[in-house]
């Protein structure tokens, strides 16, 4: 059970949060101009990395804010959390 440092509320139990999958997948601005393959790439393809991964999390039972997290999926170490729109930290 992680201890997650919500950028708005501080450290809270994992049970207050929900994970929204891979981060930094931007919804295309002109979806109609994309081929099926390009759209499928946005819609379906996720990296599912074993190791350091950028993820979206939502403080669902708290401030309800979405934010990003850098987490190592192999050992669950959370390296950083940062607000939506902020640049991911450079290692």
């Amino acid at each position: 059970m992680f201890l997650i440092n919500c950028p708005y509320c501080g450290e809270r139990d994992q049970s207050e949060f929900s994970c929204g999958g891979e981060a930094h997948i931007v919804r295309p601005k002109q979806p109609t101009e994309l081929s099926d393959d390009q759209w499928a790439e946005y819609l379906f393809m996720r990296k599912n990395i074993k190791g350091v991964q950028f993820e979206r999390w939502n403080h669902a039972h708290g401030c309800r804010k979405w934010f990003n997290m850098v987490r190592d999926t192999s050992n669950d170490k959370i390296h950083a959390v940062y607000k939506m729109g902020e640049k991911p930290p450079v290692e």
């Binding site: 929204g20 979206r56 309800r64």
Partner: peptide, 13 residues
Amino acid sequence: LSKLEDYLQTEWP
């Protein structure tokens, strides 16, 4: 509500 909040906060701030 969660889905709408998600779009508002992340795609269309």
